[in-house]
Amino acid sequence: MTLQIQNLGRHVGQQWIVRHLNLHVEDGECVALVGPSGCGKSSTLRLIAGLDPVSEGEIILNQKNISHVSAAQRAVGMVFQSYALLPHLSVFANLELGLRVRGVRPSDRQQRIQAMLELVQLQDRADVLPAQLSGGQRQRVALARALLRDPDVYLLDEPMSNLDAQLREELRPELRRLVLDRQKPVIHVTHDQHEAMAIADRIAVLHSGRIQQVATPTELYHLPETLFIAKFIGRPQINCLRPKDGVITAVRPESLFFAKEGLPCKLMSREWLGSSQLLYLESPEGSLRLSCSTSVDIPESLIVSWHRSDEHYFDEDSGRRL
């Protein structure tokens, strides 16, 4: 049981929203789609769900081409960013509607919903309207609805972006427990790279409707294939030195250190981040970010250096890794 996407594309008018998209997701594997807004990550999800028509390419789920199967027939479980709960129905009725539509017997429905509510720890909120739930609870109802669908693939469209940072952190392990335990392919769209790194087995970085790289979080961080990925993954953002002979050298802020010899810098400003601090420096090579421990004293004369092995090289024109 796997999800295979081959050369997938969709255009509206002359504009390609997604193109030449290839992705393979195993059972029980979670792939995160990340990218800046408008990069086509949500569009990709809508294509897989069948909410938008496929212009070219194929979506193959369990050896079956579902590219032109209607959304209702696709066995897809989707969690929407807005949760998409019916405001006039109770939590129970919201969960029941899908089962009812698919012709599950009333006694079965009752039992399955009860079990599901226990799983997401909302058993005492069954008769409550969505408006009376907190954001995190609504998100769990939306998740419960997708789980009740018992789909062949899970699609999570920024499921946590409407929650505050602390709640997001609390829900991450729960999301992993509930969805990844189902041993089905999971595609998780997010603009939050921390979330992607925390949950996903592999991350696909999208830019202008195309996948730039699919890799594990560590690979993506240490061996970004393009300058765009290097800049997109990792916070604080990677430093790019002045291009020389068409080559851009990039160094992560945490690879920089103070030294006796190296690049002389001027301290512009300082951000204290609790466990670390971030220094904004001005150097002949351009502005730099340096991340270091808070216990370090900032020297009078700032001279920074780094190991050659921490350098990344990119082609100035194509942005490709060299």
């Binding site: 769900a49 209702a72 897809v76 479980g77 989707m78 998409a84 019916l86 509607l97 669908r149």
Partner: peptide, 22 residues
């Protein structure tokens, strides 16, 4: 909101069910 319809479509609902339930 359009996503209410989309969510029900993914659950297997047709246009008539959407009209009646949403």
């Amino acid at each position: 909101p359009a996503d209410l319809y989309e969510a029900l479509r993914l659950e297997g609902g047709n246009a008539l069910i959407c009209l009646r339930r949403i």
